[in-house]
Simulated scan of single mutants.
Amino acid sequence: MQHPVTAPPIPERVRTLAVGAAPTHVSVAGSALPATAVRGGVDAEGRPILLVKPDELLYGVTDEIVVTVDLVATRAIESVDRARGMLKVRGWIQPVPADEIRDAAISIAERCPDEDLFAAVESRGPRLLRVDVAQVVYLTGQESGVLDAEDYLAATPDPFLDAAERMLHHVNSAHRAQLVEAVAVLLGAPAPNAWLWELDRFGATVRTAPDNLIRLPWPAPVTSPTALEQALACLLCRH
């Protein structure tokens, strides 16, 4: 008997997390300098884009140097951001080419908005630097490991990510009582702290406690946003 796939392949999962992850710190390989705070986002190819001001580390970079950028993906639970996963992207940093600055700024503005992005586009102080990925270390819930650049960059995020995020936020904000009841039925025990944590084409992940995530796979991977919505509705109706 063939068992259903219960979760996305690791490269796809990591790329999906990276889409909404924000850079938090950057460190320079071989340097005694401590890691410093940084802003920016991740472009459509999965490469970190750093937004650097004139008085910040790396502002004067002209040649490629090796750095490690920490990215953190979060989920708001009761108005508090909780970490879903952390990625450490190691690679060579370089200025974003002048003819690509606008596209780079637009690619990260929707998920990581920052007023200084406009200044960078207009060459009014801040600069955009891009990391040419060499490897990615990931820590996501109970999983950890390393992806090389080829596997990471060849993967694509979940195809229904945007729709899934909208559905997830809607359930957590408007239908949590229904979710709590449905999870309690599935577990055979009360689950008052259940929150929808992740949603993708292979299933849903529910957070019932800070250190407890429960994976609920679909009978088969869904193939459209409509099918994802129907699968989620079936989950919520289990009460």
Results as ranks from 00 to 15, higher is better:
residue 118 F to T: 12
residue 81 D to W: 00
residue 80 V to C: 05
residue 80 V to A: 05
residue 141 G to K: 13
residue 80 V to G: 04
residue 218 W to R: 03
residue 225 P to L: 08
residue 225 P to Q: 06
residue 13 R to N: 07
residue 169 H to Y: 06
residue 229 E to N: 14
residue 182 A to V: 06
residue 127 R to H: 06
residue 118 F to R: 06
residue 217 P to F: 08
residue 67 V to D: 12
residue 36 T to A: 02
residue 37 A to R: 13
residue 138 Y to L: 07
residue 193 N to C: 08
residue 9 P to V: 08
residue 43 D to T: 07
residue 160 F to W: 15
residue 158 D to Y: 03
residue 97 P to F: 02
residue 95 P to Y: 12
residue 236 L to K: 02
residue 109 A to Q: 01
residue 152 Y to R: 01
residue 228 L to Q: 15
residue 74 T to C: 08
residue 101 I to L: 09
residue 69 V to S: 08
residue 55 D to M: 04
residue 186 L to F: 05
residue 3 H to S: 12
residue 222 V to L: 10
residue 139 L to E: 01
residue 36 T to G: 01
residue 59 Y to R: 14
residue 88 K to W: 07
residue 103 D to R: 05
residue 126 P to R: 04
residue 85 G to Q: 10
residue 35 A to N: 09
residue 28 V to D: 10
residue 33 L to S: 03
residue 202 F to Q: 04
residue 173 S to W: 02
residue 99 D to L: 07
residue 192 P to S: 12
residue 49 I to S: 00
residue 73 A to R: 14
residue 188 G to A: 11
residue 16 T to F: 11
residue 19 V to Q: 01
residue 105 A to E: 07
residue 64 E to M: 14
residue 179 L to G: 09
residue 52 V to C: 04
residue 95 P to T: 04
residue 196 L to G: 09
residue 175 H to V: 09
residue 221 P to I: 10
residue 174 A to Q: 15
residue 41 G to K: 10
residue 25 H to K: 15
residue 189 A to S: 07
residue 132 D to N: 15
residue 229 E to L: 03
residue 188 G to W: 07
residue 121 V to G: 07
residue 96 V to D: 01
residue 30 G to W: 06
residue 11 P to V: 05
residue 146 V to R: 15
residue 153 L to W: 00
residue 129 L to K: 12
residue 128 L to P: 15
residue 190 P to V: 13
residue 86 M to D: 02
residue 218 W to Y: 11
residue 213 L to P: 00
residue 115 E to R: 06
residue 86 M to T: 11
residue 205 T to E: 15
residue 211 D to Q: 06
residue 1 M to W: 04
residue 125 G to F: 07
residue 51 L to P: 03
residue 84 R to E: 14
residue 121 V to R: 07
residue 228 L to K: 08
residue 48 P to W: 01
residue 232 L to N: 13
residue 3 H to E: 15
residue 44 A to G: 12
residue 76 A to G: 03
residue 22 A to N: 06
residue 74 T to L: 05
residue 61 V to K: 13
residue 88 K to Q: 05
residue 174 A to G: 08
residue 112 C to R: 06
residue 65 I to L: 14
residue 70 D to G: 09
residue 144 S to W: 04
residue 176 R to H: 13
residue 211 D to Y: 08
residue 62 T to C: 08
residue 69 V to Q: 05
residue 57 L to K: 05
residue 34 P to V: 04
residue 36 T to N: 01
residue 134 A to C: 14
residue 21 A to S: 14
residue 43 D to F: 13
residue 5 V to L: 14
residue 32 A to N: 00
residue 148 D to A: 03
residue 13 R to F: 00
residue 73 A to Y: 09
residue 130 R to H: 05
residue 29 A to E: 09
residue 121 V to T: 12
residue 86 M to E: 10
residue 235 L to T: 00
residue 91 G to R: 03
residue 108 I to F: 02
residue 48 P to T: 02
residue 208 T to E: 12
residue 46 G to M: 10
residue 5 V to T: 12
residue 144 S to G: 00
residue 233 A to W: 03
residue 90 R to G: 13
residue 170 H to Y: 14
residue 100 E to M: 03
residue 168 L to F: 03
residue 45 E to H: 08
residue 63 D to W: 09
residue 12 E to T: 11
residue 50 L to I: 01
residue 153 L to A: 01
residue 95 P to D: 05
residue 12 E to W: 04
residue 51 L to D: 09
